[in-house]
Design a protein around this nucleic acid. Structure first.
Lengths: 209, 209
DNA sequence: ATGGTTTTGGATCAAGCAGTCAATAACGTT
DNA sequence: AACGTTATTGACTGCTTGATCCAAAACCAT
């Protein structure tokens, strides 16, 4: 019996995500959000509660999909070592583009993790999840004989977390995609890949323009 | 004949740097700055011009000293390969501490590099300088026979830029110092160190509590 | 002392801020 | 067709913002 909404909630959150990612939480005014989403003032308050709540919705959604994107690649059906390279390439491509929307996850981590406990906890959990996915994939590769069994999977997992976040930060600062790709490929040299693994990887680095 | 200032300009800038680093540009009000610096309103405007100008002073100063800190370590009198490890450790220690003041450089890079051209240019120049210092140090190490001459010094330089920025981001998100140190040591495995270089490095990783 | 210059601190301003309220409009159910 | 429920709308509120103005105080060279 109620009057139906004239907007798509998911789309509003996505627009808000973009806006917050571009100008930050403190730097985004309610009017900015209204313009970006097309909502009327009271609609936003009815549907979401306020600026902080809408931000958290957008932030949690962005974090979840970022974590999910990593998991999907690292748990695909490819060879484990190929999955790792694919993930690094995918991070480089995602963060190394001027027109691509910047990451709200990074922004929130830098802007709010020291001020908002909930953001800090979410960021920590996300890092942990990514780290665990990487570690599991490395263990897979070790079991497949593609990575030397003496390698420390945990250490490499946290390490790749840092590399990914470094690429994200550099990408936001304007570093071009090709450079991020180089960083990704270079970081792969940390992994003691066996001859078998190297065979699976192939020699081609691919073309990413 | 003019009345002398009752404040130390450098100290004011340093206090402002800390405040901006903690709450960002948009998140810091003029009253916050007055409280942090102890200045009176008009004094701040007389001495610096306004919020934006004071921010730029603090940002440029922070960037310069961050770049300088890297350069100092990488151009010290130690063995080249030791310098690199020392720099990674120093970055981990600097960014991996809850009480240490967060980096305004990272904050500005993430918050403003897409909005303020001058910030973006400064950030880009800083990255370039760090990258160049790393590359030069790697070349030194190659000439000293500590790193395989086939290594791509440029690629490793940009790579270490990303690692450092990744550590900075993770540190701000609450990742502890020990983890950052592990990341730093792990990242060193990317470098093809010769037996001679390994000898110079020693076996000890040191104790950093 | 004294004059000229600067700092200082309080008062003030207009603009922008997040959030609220009451009235209207649109829908599904009955 | 009428009702109850919810979305929409736009005006409104009190507060904070960055910035400016002005008069009084502080200093140093003379």
């Amino acid at each position: 019996m109620p009057r139906p909404r004239m907007f798509d909630e998911a789309e509003v959150i996505d627009r808000a995500r973009r806006t917050f990612a571009e100008t930050g939480f403190a730097g985004t005014s309610l009017d900015d959000l209204l313009e970006a989403t097309g909502l009327a003032r009271q609609s936003l308050y009815n549907a979401f509660g306020g600026k902080k709540e809408l931000f958290m919705r957008a932030f949690l959604s962005d974090t979840a999909s970022a974590v999910d994107a990593v998991k999907t690649v690292l748990q695909s059906a490819e060879d484990p070592i190929v999955r790792i390279r694919t993930q690094l390439v995918s991070s480089a491509v995602e963060h190394g583009s001027a027109q691509a929307p910047p990451s709200l996850f990074l922004r929130a981590a830098v802007e709010l993790s020291s001020l908002t406990p909930e953001v800090a906890a979410t960021v920590a959990t996300a890092f942990d999840s990514i780290r665990a996915d990487y570690t599991a994939c490395i263990v897979d590769a070790q079991n497949a004989g593609e990575i030397d069994s003496s390698a420390d999977g945990e250490a490499l997992g946290t390490y790749f977390c840092a590399v990914i976040e470094g690429m994200s930060t550099l990408g936001r600062a304007g570093v071009p995609r090709a450079t991020l790709l180089q960083i990704g490929f270079t970081s792969l040299a940390t992994v003691p890949i066996t001859p078998l693994g190297r065979e699976h990887l192939g020699t081609e680095d691919g073309d990413w323009t």
